[in-house]
């Protein structure tokens, strides 16, 4: 464990909690892409199946359980409890255009052609593009609630910190996972224009609105 990975995990946890609280407190999931949240629930489900097969640390197990519970709670709130506030007309990204290439890539490029390993690889590739429906929805509506931008900021920050974690682990532990690093780079690059808008607008107290 190193400071980048710990702050990365805490940033990820903060993002997940911010979103859950936003929906729960405002009793509304306006502006939130339910499709992205389903993809994140799928990412956690396929990646954390090893909860039952291998114990790494109490921290690892506890965080995985929290992530999975929050992910499914968020999906439930969007498609169940507060379905009336779900903006399906703007959440129209074709997720099959993500799932099919990700499945093919996971089967073709992985560390080992074993079920658990292919599922892990699938979850790594899927996570790198899972935010696209959300970013697409914001580009369609042309704006996002400020709390939603904070959610996206911490979500993007977490994988950016993981990039530094991998540099640290390569240098100090000789650990290197090309699949995770490449997917993490793609994931972080997808946030770049959002980071720019967040820093130049939201942090100056303005509302995030894309040039319509």
């Amino acid at each position: 464990m190193n400071i980048f990975r710990l702050t990365g995990d805490l940033s990820h946890l903060a993002a997940i909690i911010i979103l859950l609280l936003k929906i729960w407190k405002t009793r509304s999931c306006a502006g939130i892409s339910g499709k992205s949240q389903i993809l994140f629930a799928l990412v956690f489900t396929t990646r954390y199946l090893d909860l039952f097969s291998s114990f790494i640390s109490l921290y690892n197990t506890v965080m995985k359980v929290i992530y999975i519970m929050c992910a499914y709670a968020t999906v439930y709130l969007i498609y169940g409890k507060f379905k009336a506030t779900y903006d399906g007309n703007h959440d129209t990204f074709r997720v099959e255009f993500l799932l099919i290439p990700v499945v093919l890539l996971a089967v073709l490029i992985n560390h080992a052609f074993a079920p658990m390993e292919i599922l892990w690889t699938f979850s790594i590739y899927l996570e790198s593009v899972a935010i696209l429906p959300q970013l697409f929805m914001i580009s369609k509506t042309g704006e996002a609630e400020t709390i939603t931008t904070h959610y996206l900021f911490f979500l993007g920050l977490y994988r950016t910190l993981y990039l530094f974690n991998w540099i640290w682990r390569f240098y100090f532990e000789g650990f290197f996972d090309l699949i995770a690093v490449v997917a993490g780079l793609v994931q972080t690059i997808l946030y770049c224009d959002f980071f720019y808008l967040y820093i130049t607008k939201v942090l100056k107290g303005k509302k995030l609105s894309l040039p319509a």
Binding site: R5, D9, H12, R47, D50, S54, I56, N60, M63, K64, Y67, H111, A112, A114, M116, E117, W120, Y162, N165, F170, G174, F175, F176, D177, L178, I179, A180
Partner: peptide, 10 residues
């Protein structure tokens, strides 16, 4: 350095 398939990260 090839990554092992024991994934210890979240």
């Amino acid at each position: 350095i090839i990554a092992r398939t024991q994934h210890d990260e979240l």
